[in-house]
Simulated scan of single mutants.
Amino acid sequence: MKYLVIVQGSQADYEAMAGNATDSSPAWSKPDLTAMFAHMNAINEELTAKGEMLDAQGLAAPSTTRFVTVDGDGRPVVTDGPYAETKEVVAGYWLLDCASLERVTEIAAQVARCPQPAGAPEYAVVIRPVDATGPTQD
């Protein structure tokens, strides 16, 4: 079964990872970043070796976000970030093909053990099954 494993963050976290402390997160040092990337790369290598990895990506900072809606006439309305009202956003994801929910839960626990500086906020790792049934037609 396919699962989306999601890691969360905030604009403040991206700023902290760039070396700028915020009210909610201490500045990350180069060794902090090296440890985090080594941890994530090890997970990626394991998932690839086991044939479970379909895709994985880290996402750019929320400040680069663009929202697109349509007005009453169907014309696009574009709003660029950052968005002060947005607290947590998707920071990255893995699209995995795993034998069971238990296996993907093990992977999510591995992700949650990612090293980070003391005082950095902790976020739950989110698991979402991919709906393989698609829309139904009558």
Rank of each mutant, 00 (worst) to 15 (best):
E102N: 10
L101D: 15
D97I: 03
L101A: 14
R103P: 00
G81E: 07
E46C: 01
W94Y: 15
W94S: 04
M53L: 15
D73P: 00
L54F: 02
L95S: 11
V68K: 06
A56V: 10
A99F: 14
Q57E: 08
L96K: 07
D55Q: 12
M53V: 05
Y93W: 12
P82W: 00
T48D: 11
G81R: 03
Y83R: 02
V78N: 09
V78G: 12
V89G: 05
T69E: 09
A60I: 12
G58S: 12
W94Q: 04
P76K: 02
R103K: 10
G92T: 09
Y93I: 08
E102Q: 13
R75Q: 14
P62C: 01
Y93E: 03
A60G: 13
A60T: 15
E88W: 00
T48V: 03
E88N: 11
D80K: 02
V90E: 11
D55H: 14
V89M: 15
T64Q: 13
E85S: 12
G81F: 03
T65E: 05
W94A: 02
Y83L: 07
A49E: 13
T79P: 08
A91L: 11
A84Q: 08
P76C: 06
D97G: 06
A60S: 15
P62Q: 02
Q57N: 13
G72T: 04
E52H: 10
R75F: 03
V90R: 05
L59D: 00
D55M: 12
Q57M: 12
A84R: 07
T64N: 12
E45R: 08
L101N: 12
E52A: 10
E45K: 11
K50S: 11
E52N: 04
D97C: 04
D71T: 00
G72S: 12
D73Y: 01
T69P: 02
R103E: 05
T69H: 08
G51K: 07
Y93K: 04
A60W: 12
D80G: 03
D80A: 04
E88Y: 00
F67C: 07
Y93A: 08
T48S: 11
L101R: 15
L101T: 13
V78A: 09
A61G: 10
